[in-house]
């Protein structure tokens, strides 16, 4: 059971890490409020599922609400200087949590909100239910993985990668920055929203204290470790970090140490990030060259005499 539980969380975090990959890995946008969009998705799911909406509709709602918030946040921030986006997203994460905590009518405030399980009433054993959750999360993860893989190997993905490196040059080449950046934040936020919806569905009770900035921090560690602008990197980074995150909790429960291994772990993650940024900024997996069909044509050209 513990293994299945870990698999579910790995899948959810992999979604978050891939969503940050769209924003930061491909487009170069530092979103430091990832948890806010995760939270928005979780609450959107919780509220609509409580109204009796089916799972898929609630998940769509989670994506839409989080995506719309992504657009809202992007609009003021993207017209200002680059670093304002970091400040705006960071504060947005805090504001949303405080707002949900304060507004009891909305979703229970500090008392939290219970969420109906997607698999309730089917008479499943706990074990089968856990498997069902694993399948649900990983099926969606596979879909998102494929979707992003396709999206980033298009002319659209090329523009995003261009913006990441030199947005003035891309503008001079005729591409409007604001719409691309806003779209990247919307897509990233919508995926984070789906992750939030899956999270709420799985743990069946959410409260504002689950959505601390620590979540954002973990997602960043995952992406930077795995390798920005590489979908496998984002996925495997999430698996590794979540593995250690889990492992340290087990160690804490079963072995008496003079320190708290779970907290020490975060210090180590922090050091790991500094080390990676200094010595291996591309992480475990490097970015792959783009594939749009144009490169095939060029190879033909080059090999013909």
């Amino acid at each position: 059971m513990y293994l299945l539980d870990t698999l579910v969380f790995m899948g959810i975090f992999a979604l978050l890490s891939m969503s940050l990959n769209v924003e930061y890995g491909y487009t170069g946008l530092g979103n430091f409020g990832k948890v806010a969009f995760f939270m928005a998705g979780a609450y959107a799911y919780a509220v609509t599922a409580a109204l009796g909406w089916p799972v898929y509709l609630s998940l769509v709602m989670a994506a839409l609400i989080a995506g719309a918030l992504g657009a809202v946040v992007s609009l003021p921030a993207l017209r200002l200087r680059e670093d304002y986006l970091a400040i705006v997203t960071l504060s947005f994460g805090e504001i949303l949590r405080i707002f949900v905590k304060a507004e009891q009518w909305l979703a229970g405030g500090v008392w939290g909100k219970t969420v109906p399980s997607a698999f309730a009433g089917l008479g499943l054993s706990p074990k089968t239910m856990a498997w069902a959750n694993v399948l649900l999360v990983w099926a969606i993860l596979a879909g998102v993985f494929l979707f992003l893989h396709l999206l980033m190997n298009t002319p659209y993905g090329r523009v995003l990668r261009g913006i990441r490196e030199d947005d003035v040059a891309v503008q001079v080449l005729g591409k409007s920055l604001v719409s691309y950046k806003a779209q990247a934040l919307m897509v990233g936020s919508a995926i984070a929203g789906v992750a939030g919806g899956l999270f709420a569905q799985y743990i069946r009770f959410i409260d504002p204290y689950m959505f601390l900035p620590l979540v954002t921090f973990l997602v960043w560690v995952m992406l930077i470790l795995g390798g920005p602008a590489n979908h496998w990197g984002a996925l495997i980074g999430a698996l590794i970090v979540e593995f250690f995150n889990r492992g340290s909790r087990i160690v804490k429960d079963y072995i008496a140490l003079p320190f708290d291994p779970h907290n020490v772990q975060f210090v180590l993650f922090g050091l790991l990030i500094i080390f990676l940024l200094l010595y291996r900024p591309y992480g475990l997996f490097r970015e792959k060259p783009m594939r749009t069909g144009a490169e095939v044509e060029v190879s033909k050209w080059q090999s013909s005499p």
């Binding site: 261009g162 490196e165 040059a169 001079v172 970015e287 060259p289 783009m290 060029v298």
Partner: peptide
């Protein structure tokens, strides 16, 4: 020149 150095010449 303001090239996108991480992308190929073709891109």
């Amino acid at each position: 020149p303001r090239l996108i150095t991480q992308l190929t010449v073709l891109d």
